[in-house]
Amino acid sequence: PFFGYLPEIRRAVYTTNCVEALNFQLRKVTKTKGAFPSEDAALKVLYLAIQRASAKWSGPIKDWRSALNVFTIVFEGRLPAR
């Protein structure tokens, strides 16, 4: 189904690389720990890892304007009016 969309939409929603990078960061911080003293401690470590990783997500989506135009045409009525 993914390849049924137009190239502009595929570029905007293609996230495998981002997801893999985040999973790598989460594995990196949890792999070195043998065990966590509590569930809250594990959640805190994961939260801090996500905060650190999200600081790198500052770049805009490439060709977002053309993707948004295609989204508006293909999914008519689903996007709010600009």
Score class of each variant (00 low, 15 high):
1 P>Q: 05
1 P>H: 06
1 P>N: 01
2 F>E: 00
2 F>A: 03
2 F>H: 06
2 F>V: 00
3 F>L: 11
4 G>V: 02
4 G>Q: 11
4 G>W: 07
4 G>M: 06
6 L>R: 11
6 L>V: 00
6 L>N: 01
8 E>I: 01
8 E>L: 02
8 E>T: 02
9 I>Y: 04
9 I>W: 02
10 R>L: 03
10 R>Y: 00
12 A>L: 04
13 V>P: 00
14 Y>Q: 10
16 T>Q: 05
17 N>K: 01
19 V>I: 14
19 V>N: 08
21 A>F: 02
21 A>C: 06
22 L>N: 04
22 L>T: 05
23 N>Q: 14
23 N>V: 00
24 F>K: 12
25 Q>H: 04
26 L>R: 10
26 L>H: 09
28 K>F: 05
30 T>R: 10
31 K>D: 13
33 K>V: 09
36 F>T: 06
39 E>D: 10
40 D>V: 03
40 D>P: 02
41 A>F: 13
41 A>D: 15
41 A>Q: 13
42 A>R: 15
42 A>G: 13
43 L>C: 12
45 V>F: 14
45 V>G: 11
48 L>S: 02
48 L>G: 04
49 A>C: 04
50 I>N: 08
50 I>H: 05
51 Q>F: 01
52 R>M: 09
53 A>W: 14
53 A>D: 09
53 A>S: 14
56 K>I: 02
58 S>C: 13
58 S>I: 11
60 P>F: 03
60 P>S: 08
60 P>N: 10
61 I>V: 11
63 D>Q: 13
63 D>S: 12
64 W>N: 11
64 W>E: 15
66 S>C: 09
70 V>C: 07
70 V>G: 01
72 T>A: 12
72 T>K: 07
73 I>H: 10
73 I>T: 14
74 V>S: 07
75 F>V: 02
75 F>H: 11
76 E>L: 01
76 E>R: 08
77 G>E: 04
80 P>R: 09
80 P>I: 03
81 A>C: 09
82 R>F: 09
82 R>G: 12
